[in-house]
Each structure stands twice: as structure tokens, then as C-alpha cells.
């Protein structure tokens, strides 16, 4: 118990610090004293406008996307009983890309890219689920395979559409790497609402997720309505992922790596894993966004590049470590 209290305190502190740093840093640096003063008493000064209209929404977006993806990742890992699953694994990313390019091609400059990505991601997961649904309990391995197949098909169509309409390439490319730039309060609010709804759906099933870690059959014996709970969690996790993708495009590795780190820090109990993942995911992406905006010489780069740059090697390290634990070939 003491360990988790410490971890929660640490996570809250970390998030607060990264958020303050996030508001302070940007093309022009705003001193801490000004940030604090303008947070509590906004005025019409240029700093106040930067803080309230640009930096603060961006920082909130980063916390929402980071936290949302981390929780979605934790849920997918429990559902698939695989610590190497991520929120995009069953087709969400391919569906979101497909939706985004479709909106960009059919209704250019209408700003429908984000909502279309939201719907595309959600729809792709549902199609994968329906395809994998069989007699009795849905096999989660079948779900991964169906998600993979749906992803491959959608990606090929997306690539084809991109080649047809090369003028969109840079827009779509930037979106696929994932970045948090120029978000408005309205977008933050929409995403926030969906994230809150998903989290409210997921939370009461935290103990059921612990049971699912023991396998679907044992979860059944312990009193989990396995099929129903899996569907509810899958929908909620997809909603969470879609809400994050809506704000930022496809940011990789947060949803994979953060739940992993939290598990090593605090154990796999979802009662603590879920809230801690949100806090650490939020802090991580906020910090990554500061780094992305402060790259020397080149200038700002998409935050998705930073997370991939940090997350990729860590993922490889996990894979190697997991293989060693199983005995592997050695």
C-alpha cells in the first residue's frame, strides 16, 4: 500500500511539473512567475494570450492524449493477455488513417480530418471484432489476426488514395506521425468528454481485468461475464484511442510503454495500474511535447517522432527481456 501511495504522489508531482514546464516553454519562454500569475489572473497581455490560447490547450491536449493512450494500452494488454499489445493493435490506427485520408480527399479544407479519423478508428475495431466473433467466447488471438488483416487492407487502400492525390501527402504524413499543434479549446473539450465517458465505462471493470489476466476460462469461473466485459472494454478502449487520435493523429508507443513501466513500478493490479498509467502517460507526453518543440537547429518536430524515438528502443529491450525470461533458445 505504501509503495502505491508513493507512486501516486510521484505521478501527481511529475504531471504538475511537466505541465508547468509545458506552459513555460515554446518559441518564446515565459518565466515561471508570469505563468503562475497569468494562470490565476488572465489579462490582455501577450503572455496571457499565449498561455491561455496556445500553450495551455496544447498542454491539456498532451495530457489527455498521453493519459488516454496509456489507459487504452493497459486495457488492450489485459484484454489480449499480452503485455506487448498497444491501443492500435486491432485496427484502430489503420481505420483512423483511412478515415483521415478519405475526409482529406473528399472534403478537403473542411476540417473533417479529425472527426473522420475518430469514426474510422472506431469502425475498424468493430469490424475486426465482428469478424473474430465465433461460437462461445471470442478468441482474442483471432481478434488480433482479424485486426491485423483489416489493418493491412485499410492501409493498402489508404496508400493508394495517397498516391492518387499527392497534394495531400504532406498533410497526411504529418498527421500519421502524430503531433499536437494548434489545438483549440473546442477540440480539447470534445476529446475530454469522450475520454471521461470511456474512463467511466472502464473503471468499474478494473477487478474484472485482473481476472482476465488469468485467462478467459478462469475469469469465467471467477464470475466475469467474459464475452460482455470484453466487448465493453474493447469499445471503451477504442473510444479512448479514437478520442486521442482525434486530437493528435497517430502517436505511437505511449500506449505500449507507459502501462509497462507502471506495471514494473507498481504491479499489474488494474485498480492502481489504470489511474497511474493515466498520470504517467500524461506526464510523459507533455514532456515529450516540450522536447519536440525544443529540438535545436531543426526547430519543432512532431511529438510522435519523439515518443517513437524513446519508445522503440524500450520496446525492443522489453522483447529481449521477455524472451530471456521464457528461456528462449539460450
Amino acid at each position: 500500500m505504501q509503495r502505491s501511495a508513493l507512486n501516486f504522489t510521484g505521478a501527481f508531482l511529475l504531471l504538475t511539473i511537466t505541465m508547468v514546464v509545458g506552459v513555460m516553454h515554446g518559441p518564446t519562454r515565459i518565466p515561471l512567475s508570469v505563468v503562475i500569475a497569468r494562470l490565476f489572473s488572465p489579462n490582455s497581455s501577450i503572455n496571457s494570450v499565449i498561455i491561455w490560447d496556445i500553450r495551455f490547450p496544447a498542454v491539456l491536449a498532451a495530457t489527455l492524449v498521453g493519459g488516454g493512450l496509456a489507459v487504452a494500452g493497459a486495457v488492450m494488454q489485459a484484454l489480449l493477455k499480452n503485455p506487448l499489445a498497444d491501443p492500435y493493435i486491432v485496427g484502430a490506427s489503420a481505420g483512423a488513417s483511412f478515415g483521415a485520408i478519405l475526409a482529406e480527399d473528399l472534403l478537403p479544407s473542411m476540417g473533417f480530418m479529425a472527426p473522420a479519423a475518430f469514426i474510422g478508428g472506431l469502425a475498424a475495431v468493430m469490424v475486426s471484432y465482428l469478424l473474430s466473433r465465433g461460437r462461445g467466447i471470442t478468441s482474442m488471438l483471432t481478434l488480433i489476426l482479424a485486426g491485423y488483416a483489416v489493418g493491412v487492407i485499410l492501409t493498402s487502400v489508404t496508400t493508394f488514395l495517397m498516391l492518387l492525390n499527392r497534394s495531400d501527402l504532406s498533410t497526411i504524413f504529418a498527421w500519421e506521425v502524430g503531433g499536437i499543434n494548434g489545438v483549440t479549446w473546442r477540440q480539447v473539450l470534445i476529446s475530454f468528454i469522450f475520454i471521461v465517458i470511456s474512463v467511466i465505462i472502464i473503471w468499474p471493470f478494473a477487478s474484472d481485468m485482473n481476472a482476465l489476466l488469468l485467462g478467459e476460462e478462469q475469469a469465467h469461473h471467477l464470475g466475469v461475464a467474459v464475452r460482455r466485459v470484453q466487448l465493453i472494454l474493447l469499445v471503451a478502449a477504442s473510444l479512448l484511442t479514437a478520442a486521442a487520435v482525434y486530437l493528435s493523429g497517430l502517436i505511437g508507443f505511449v500506449g505500449l510503454v507507459i502501462p509497462h513501466i507502471v506495471r514494473r513500478l507498481n504491479g499489474p493490479n488494474h485498480r492502481q495500474l489504470l489511474p497511474l498509467s493515466f498520470l504517467f502517460g500524461a506526464a510523459f507526453l507533455t514532456l515529450a511535447n516540450v522536447v519536440a518543440n525544443a529540438v535545436p537547429v531543426i526547430g519543432p518536430i512532431p511529438v510522435g517522432l519523439v515518443t517513437a524515438f524513446l519508445g522503440g528502443p524500450y520496446f525492443l529491450y522489453l522483447l529481449v527481456k521477455q524472451n530471456q525470461r521464457r528461456g528462449g533458445l539460450a
Binding site: 503485455p83 489476466l213 485467462g215 506495471r263 504491479g267 499489474p268
Partner: peptide, 9 residues
């Protein structure tokens, strides 16, 4: 028997 990849106590 029951195996899990997760470190539940």
C-alpha cells in the same frame, strides 16, 4: 494449471 504473463501477487 494456470499460467499468466503478469506479475499478480
Amino acid at each position: 494449471t494456470l499460467d499468466t504473463q503478469f506479475d499478480l501477487t
